[in-house]
Design a protein around this nucleic acid. Structure first.
Length: 515
RNA sequence: CGGGGCGUAGCGUAGCCCGGUAUCGCGCCUGCUUUGGGAGCAGGAGGUCGUCAGUUCGAAUCUGGCCGCCCCGACCA
């Protein structure tokens, strides 16, 4: 990988597929090829597809309109799914008193190293430095910028929960959080990120576990049906568990480079936070009991997952269900009259598409040329492009190009809305199938540790037996950089022997190198 | 926090070793011709060379400090 970086960037133009004689080295919009340097490809793509850029604040990004529009689609789909499962939204403060964070021992231990802390509340002008933090404005108790909200929320829930009649409490919040990461990557790991965090309180352990699993299912369904990204549901090992949780469930996805990405987590928190914050309720039988808790979240990291699951060397590929605009229509006109004719020609089709709920953009911007638009929309991942020129008007046709396969075909305008609707559905499922095929191609079972070491170099998911100890997990991580992504749920558990120690193992777990 | 790389116009860069105020491409502006895969020609605008100090008649170039960013690792969603 390092060698690849030193080779430098070999510029490419996807147009070379069609015109192979032009020197494109001077073109502005270029991205590195995946097989040349995957990390650089990812970075180029985020920037060139106009999804986000680095801000002047280290580790923080600016999410640009195109990227934010995709995030908004994710939000609205997820939000509807949360509401459908009985949850409501609320909002809790950005700042958390330091003392709250300290109340749950393993929680604070997990987050302490990456907290931003507010110590003062005022600035003042200074003859030498212009403006300084006013030393007289020191906060009595420092405030932590939330890295997650369990503590402030559970402190609040104490006042809300008195009786079994107040339960369950099913609340979600959309928010930003800050984790002072040492190393950041656009969308995948930023110091500030956007997410949702659900926090629920239940009367019984069974109910809380059920909730934890229900939300994991919601995430899995969202990932597969909207992101078109196959995921594996599983449980984290103790070392990968959320700080403060009894059990952490996750969905794991495989990126095109064979690395794993945790795409969502759902935690069964037991009574840990209820005990730390003294959240007690009276049962039907008039007993005082601590409530049972869950929390679950997905973040703007899903943007990274989306990019690395579907996109190619030509740019972004967005599944139709998450595309801000599903169909872009590009007129090819020599003059104003021709443009007007095209507009009249296609208007009924646009109306029919919109009536079907398809989002369409008719790009009649005459300051950009058709060829430029083709390349631009391809780079930005619009699922379907329709081009219309004089020839089409003569023939009653349009040219339809699909982003996922780059195939173009001429279609009659008759029933075009219907055909495009079907095409969008086909693209959505094709993307899922392609991603699933990739995952299957790079998934295998191994039994011996030597065999494992070879396999892990080739990437992908490796199913292997593990003796259940943290020591073995640690050893594998140190020697191969692979971690246990999860203990998969469901399927049949066939016992065996740990590939490292030979000790008995109840079932295979998934090892991979991960983001 | 370690290792590597880099800061020159909006973007990407040349120049640096061998000091003489800056190269080229893209983009931008104007005009004409163009428009079915990032158009062509002509003209034009745009730079305190990251920052501070030093050496020098003279610094993008040499010396030292500082700041910032990117990539790789440790940590993590």
């Amino acid at each position: 990988m390092r060698a690849a970086i030193r080779i430098g960037v070999v510029y490419f133009r996807h147009l070379l597929k069609y015109k192979n004689n032009t020197d494109r080295s001077g073109m502005a919009e270029v991205i590195t090829k995946r097989d040349q340097d995957y990390a650089k490809w990812y970075n180029d793509l985020v920037l060139k597809a106009d999804l986000a850029e680095h801000s002047d604040v280290r580790g923080c990004m600016v999410i640009k309109p195109h990227g934010y529009a995709i995030w908004e689609k994710m939000q609205s789909a997820l939000d509807a799914m949360f509401k459908a499962t009985g949850h409501v939204n609320a909002y809790f403060p950005l700042f958390i008193p330091k003392s709250y964070l300290a109340k749950e021992a393993s929680h604070v231990e997990g987050f302490a190293k990456e907290c931003a802390v507010v110590t003062h509340y005022r600035l003042k002008s200074d003859p030498v430095h212009g403006i300084i933090v006013d030393p007289d404005a020191k906060l009595e108790e420092e405030l932590i910028v939330r890295p997650t909200s369990e503590t402030i929320i559970w402190n609040t829930y104490r006042g809300w929960v008195k009786s079994y009649r107040d339960l369950p409490l099913l609340i979600n919040q959309w928010a930003n959080v800050v984790r002072w990461e040492m190393r950041t990557r656009l969308f995948l790991r930023t110091a500030e990120f956007l997410w949702q965090e659900g926090h629920t309180a239940h009367a019984t352990k069974e109910e809380a576990v059920e909730e934890t699993e229900r939300m994991l299912d919601v995430y899995a369904t969202f990932a597969e049906e909207w992101l078109a990204m196959p995921v594996i549901k599983g449980i984290k090992t103790a070392s990968e568990r959320f700080a403060g949780a009894v059990d952490t469930y996750c969905i794991e996805a495989m990126m095109q480079d064979g690395k794993a990405l945790q795409a969502g987590t759902s935690h069964f928190l037991g009574q840990n936070f209820a005990k730390a914050f003294d959240v007690v309720f009276t049962t039907k039988e008039n007993r005082q009991e601590h409530v049972w808790a869950t929390s679950w979240g997905v973040s703007t990291r899903l943007m990274g997952a989306l990019i690395m699951t579907h996109s190619d060397d030509n740019g972004l590929v967005i599944p139709p269900k998450l595309a801000p605009v599903q169909v872009v229509v590009i007129p090819i006109a020599k003059n104003e009259e021709q443009l007007a004719a095209i507009r009249a020609y296609i208007e009924p089709v646009l109306a029919a598409m919109r009536a079907k709920g398809i989002t369409v953009k008719f790009d009649d911007d005459d300051k950009k040329k058709p060829g430029w638009k083709f390349a631009e929309y391809e780079l930005k991942g619009f699922p379907v492009r329709i081009a219309i020129g004089p020839r089409d008007m003569e023939n009653g046709t349009v040219e339809v190009a699909r982003r996922d396969t780059l195939e173009k075909q001429v279609m009659q305008t008759v029933d075009l809305a219907e055909k495009v609707d079907n095409l969008l559905t086909a693209i959505q499922s094709n993307l899922y199938e392609k991603a699933l095929a990739l995952r299957e191609r790079y998934t295998r079972s191994v039994d011996g540790y030597d065999e494992f070491k070879v396999a892990i170099e080739e990437g992908g998911f490796i199913y292997a037996h593990w003796d259940g100890t943290a020591q073995t997990e640690e050893k594998v991580k140190n020697e191969t950089k692979a971690t246990i992504r999860c203990i998969p749920l469901g399927g049949t558990a066939s016992p065996g022997k740990c590939m490292v120690t030979g000790a008995p193992s109840a079932r295979r777990v998934i090892f991979a190198r991960a983001y």
